[in-house]
Design a protein around this nucleic acid. Structure first.
Lengths: 107, 107
DNA sequence: CCGTATCCCGAATGATACTG
DNA sequence: CAGTATCATTCGGGATACGG
């Protein structure tokens, strides 16, 4: 069950998508532009997962050309908090980790 | 750089090893027994990474038969805090996520 | 006891082309 | 525009066997 969450935290794109969505709602193509390196395919798959888990809402407008907007849910926003916690830890301890790695690799 | 941390958080065994090591120091074979499903190979690889990143210390005793003890560093213990944060979130929101999935799959 | 070395398979991801 | 389909590739990780 915690694995479940970790699989989402740990996968390559979920956290990035959620973080990018933090604050404002965005269209598919906007997300594609704002997340460097993500493929159309992976953006679709990631958004579907996040939607299924209730972290993101998907709103399609019946227009031509099509428009689809994505936004965080309340749950999604609490998930962002987790992300921030991890990010803070990463930033704080990155120097220490790098030192440790350098020392280890020196052997 | 945050990816770095997430790769550790997200991989299959690191968090489990760190959590198991929380509190007391343990031998290799003890870890193997306490973590169901982990292979010797993955335990070794995971411990090496954690050691390299400075989250775990490895102490080998020159005895026969060999004895090797693993323990968390101070940094490793702060990492456990992150794990707890994630675990709390998982436990709190698991029901909501399950509901959301069920609703999604119903379509 | 504590690993390392190989082989291997399936899942995850990327690239590319096509469509409502 | 916002996807889906398909193919090719990479890679994490399991099984197994061997070694200091």
């Amino acid at each position: 069950m915690i694995r479940d969450v970790l699989d989402r935290v740990g996968d390559k794109w979920s956290l990035l998508v959620v973080a990018t969505l933090d604050g404002d709602t965005m269209r598919f193509s906007e997300l594609l532009r704002h997340i460097p390196g993500i493929s159309q395919r992976m953006l679709t798959l990631t958004l579907r997962q996040l939607e299924r888990d209730g972290l993101v809402t998907r709103t399609a407008f019946a227009e031509v050309p099509p428009r689809v907007e994505y936004a965080l849910t309340a749950l999604g926003r609490t998930f962002v908090d987790i992300a921030h916690t991890i990010a803070r830890w990463a930033i704080t301890n990155h120097p220490t980790i790098e030192e440790s790695r350098a020392a280890y690799d020196a052997r």
